[in-house]
């Protein structure tokens, strides 16, 4: 994705955002303290919004598509309300994105005991103890590409949590970038950082920090260089303006785009 195109996109969003200021009725975007509900097996993660309890996710392991948030912090929930049977008393949000907000908040400290009525009605993906056969960290178990790939220009996109920088999810995203660039002996690499905003269900807009687009882009460049990708010429840019959020796919703006050229 070129620099120009993302700028055009973001302008379009700004003008669109002025009109449609609310997410659709199925979307639930809110900031709340997460709540842990123990069960006879793994704990459930929940959060309350406008008097209603929502189910966020279960404790599983690192490789899970959705990871539980943290007590001691508020969480930004961006999810879609479903009609699925409630889990642990909460309305199931799916898909759901959870971003732990960086500030510490000692008020977020609710750990509820197991109650028979809130037991899981299904086998959780993994028990609280060691897994049976299936290994955690599968995403890190990187397979090296065996055949030399074609030397073509290739785009990668690295996503982030709200206010997030590189963390435990990123090795699985950065490794293919590194492998491809090394495999085709890339001569140049373009990195473009973005930041976003989140439109909450009550109309509030949360903006990511002003410098985050730059910090994300620079960090990705440092990491790739630190991992030994020092051959190619790096072009590192960022787009400081956060496009106006629409409340449905705001997380897509929180990203770094990478283009690897032969």
């Amino acid at each position: 994705m070129s620099l120009q195109r993302s700028i055009t996109l973001s302008l379009a969003c700004v003008s669109g955002g002025a009109v449609a200021a609310m997410p659709d009725s199925v979307q639930r975007n809110f900031v709340a303290c997460p709540i842990v509900r123990d069960t006879a097996s793994v704990p459930c993660w929940l959060a309350e919004y406008e008097g209603e309890l929502y189910f966020l996710t279960l404790q599983t392991d690192v490789s899970a598509p959705v990871n539980p948030p943290m007590l001691g912090h508020k969480v930004l929930v961006e999810g879609r309300r479903t009609d699925k049977p409630r889990i642990c008393g909460g309305i199931v949000l799916e898909p759901v994105r959870l971003s732990v907000l960086p500030a510490l908040d000692a008020n977020c400290n609710q750990l509820l005991p197991a109650e028979a009525q809130y037991n899981l009605t299904f086998e959780p993906p993994r028990p609280p103890g060691p897994s049976k056969g299936r290994l955690a960290f599968n995403t890190l178990d990187v397979q090296q590409a065996e055949v030399a790939p074609q030397r073509v220009e290739k785009h990668f996109s690295i996503g982030y949590d709200f206010e997030g920088r590189v963390g435990f999810k990123h090795p699985a995203l950065l490794q293919p970038v590194l492998d491809y660039a090394l495999a085709i002996k890339a001569t140049s690499i373009n990195i473009e950082g973005h930041r976003g905003a989140a439109l909450l269900s009550d109309g509030t807009i949360l903006n990511e920090s002003p410098k985050l687009a730059q910090q994300r882009a620079q960090q990705v460049a440092e990491l790739l260089q630190g991992a030994g990708l020092i051959g190619p010429r790096y072009t590192v840019r960022w787009i400081d303006a956060a496009p106006a959020p629409n409340g449905s796919d705001d997380s897509a703006q929180r990203r770094v785009d990478i283009t690897i050229k032969p």
């Binding site: 842990v36 404790q59 539980p68 943290m70 750990l111 609280p128 963390g167 435990f168």
Partner: peptide
Amino acid sequence: NSVGLGNPTKRT
């Protein structure tokens, strides 16, 4: 607790 298991995590 920072690597996707949640905080707290019920484990061993």
